[in-house]
């Protein structure tokens, strides 16, 4: 499923809203997620799961073909922890 598919379903469910409004609302949700993650905040959504950032430490890497050493910097990654209900539904059958 892509964002465009997601928008189509949302547009159908919220028919009374202008399409532009639906798109804007989804955009706002995603922006709010990103801006909070960049502040180091954790996003917790009951049943679904939570998103948080984790630091990958800097390390010395090597260019595999030349053997040259390079410094790889610290990097923040986004980690998703699935919620109980999500874990359950993806394992049903």
């Amino acid at each position: 499923m892509k964002k465009s598919d997601l928008l189509l379903i949302l547009e159908k469910k919220f028919e009374y809203l202008p399409k532009r409004e639906v798109e804007r609302t989804l955009e706002k949700i995603l922006q709010f997620f990103s801006s909070n993650l960049s502040k180091g905040n954790r996003i917790e959504i009951r049943d679904f799961g939570s998103l948080s950032t984790r630091l990958r430490k800097s390390r010395i890497g090597r260019n595999p073909s030349t053997g040259e050493k390079i410094k790889i910097k610290d990097k923040l990654l986004v980690h998703f922890t699935p919620g109980k209900k999500l874990k359950k539904i993806i394992n049903e059958e």
Partner: peptide, 21 residues
Amino acid sequence: TFIDILMKSLKNKKDVKIVNF
């Protein structure tokens, strides 16, 4: 509803790809 769509998609074994996210 948004979260629900995500969960249903994953339940149906479909990955969810959100551009720029």
